[in-house]
Amino acid sequence: MTSVYRKVRVKAGPGGWGGPLVLEPDERRNKVMSVTGGGIHPVAQRIAELTGAQAIDGFFKPAPDAEVLCVVIDCGGTARVGVYPMKRIPTIDIYPASPSGPLASFIKEDVFVSGVRLDDIEVVA
């Protein structure tokens, strides 16, 4: 059976930090969780479309961490920026944040990328 999923590369946008992240959904991890507030962010929607994963709103229909391919956040705060990298869940920040705050030590290039725009997402073979 051929996989319905595709792989994408997400790189940092202008002023951003971290990445690039390579994301490929599988049968287990196939949710792109938008933890942005105000609905599903276009960046989450794009990643879902390109990979074949499902975009969900983390505030209204959250998925268990084990099903999450990546989260998309848009907050230059401490919580969302730090908590998901700490849990080793790939984190895509729309805001061009760099590691800071009490959870900064968990924010690594291999699990966090920021300043991401729609054009920073591309399918890789």
Binding site: M33, V35, G58, F59, F60, P62, I89
Partner: peptide
């Protein structure tokens, strides 16, 4: 102190 409404996902 991080404050959230009750609908915050579990990790947060």
């Amino acid at each position: 102190m991080v404050l959230f409404g009750e609908q915050a996902p579990e990790a947060l």
